[in-house]
Simulated assay, not measured.
Amino acid sequence: MKTLFNVYRVLALVVGVLLAVGTIGSILKYLLEDGSALQQVGDDLTPIWLIHGWIYMVYVAIAFVLTQKARWTMPQFLLMLVAGLIPGLIFWVERRVADRLRAEHPELVGS
């Protein structure tokens, strides 16, 4: 079960970073003057959203399995899902999930 926890943590980090980079790219792409160098950088970062989407789907599956193993309620699972859609929130939620798992289900964490 330790592997499931580690996979969740890595996926949360990757999803969070991709979401932050994608958001910055969108800001550069849509809020800056057309043709500027930074606007082009934002345009070049557009494929990040595709990568984020695919990895987010894996994150959702792993989060579901983890919440089932921990016997957590639907609101906890929904918080984990929403965290992958709001920039920055996933880092706080990942820490909260890790702390809660360590306290309630040390067998899932492997500590």
Rank of each mutant, 00 (worst) to 15 (best):
residue 1 M to P: 11
residue 2 K to C: 05
residue 2 K to Q: 12
residue 4 L to C: 08
residue 4 L to G: 09
residue 5 F to D: 09
residue 6 N to V: 03
residue 6 N to F: 12
residue 7 V to K: 13
residue 8 Y to L: 01
residue 9 R to T: 02
residue 10 V to F: 14
residue 11 L to F: 06
residue 11 L to D: 04
residue 12 A to F: 08
residue 13 L to A: 11
residue 14 V to R: 09
residue 15 V to I: 02
residue 16 G to M: 01
residue 17 V to M: 10
residue 17 V to Y: 12
residue 19 L to P: 01
residue 19 L to S: 04
residue 21 V to T: 00
residue 28 L to S: 04
residue 31 L to E: 04
residue 31 L to F: 13
residue 32 L to W: 06
residue 32 L to K: 09
residue 32 L to Y: 10
residue 33 E to W: 07
residue 34 D to Y: 12
residue 35 G to E: 08
residue 35 G to Y: 08
residue 35 G to Q: 09
residue 37 A to Q: 12
residue 37 A to Y: 12
residue 39 Q to G: 04
residue 41 V to N: 03
residue 42 G to D: 01
residue 44 D to W: 14
residue 46 T to C: 00
residue 46 T to P: 00
residue 49 W to H: 15
residue 51 I to W: 13
residue 51 I to N: 05
residue 52 H to N: 05
residue 53 G to N: 06
residue 55 I to S: 05
residue 55 I to M: 09
residue 56 Y to D: 00
residue 58 V to M: 10
residue 58 V to Y: 10
residue 60 V to M: 07
residue 62 I to P: 13
residue 62 I to A: 06
residue 62 I to S: 10
residue 63 A to L: 00
residue 64 F to V: 03
residue 67 T to F: 11
residue 67 T to P: 06
residue 68 Q to D: 03
residue 68 Q to C: 04
residue 68 Q to F: 07
residue 70 A to N: 11
residue 71 R to W: 04
residue 72 W to E: 04
residue 74 M to R: 15
residue 74 M to I: 07
residue 74 M to W: 14
residue 75 P to Q: 05
residue 76 Q to D: 01
residue 76 Q to C: 03
residue 77 F to A: 02
residue 77 F to P: 09
residue 78 L to Q: 08
residue 80 M to Y: 12
residue 81 L to E: 04
residue 83 A to K: 02
residue 83 A to T: 02
residue 84 G to N: 10
residue 85 L to V: 01
residue 86 I to V: 15
residue 86 I to G: 07
residue 90 I to R: 08
residue 92 W to T: 03
residue 93 V to F: 10
residue 93 V to W: 12
residue 93 V to Y: 13
residue 94 E to Y: 05
residue 98 A to P: 00
residue 98 A to E: 05
residue 99 D to E: 09
residue 100 R to T: 07
residue 101 L to H: 11
residue 103 A to M: 05
residue 104 E to R: 14
residue 106 P to T: 03
residue 107 E to A: 14
residue 108 L to F: 13
residue 108 L to Y: 11
residue 108 L to C: 07
residue 108 L to V: 02
residue 109 V to H: 10
residue 111 S to Y: 08
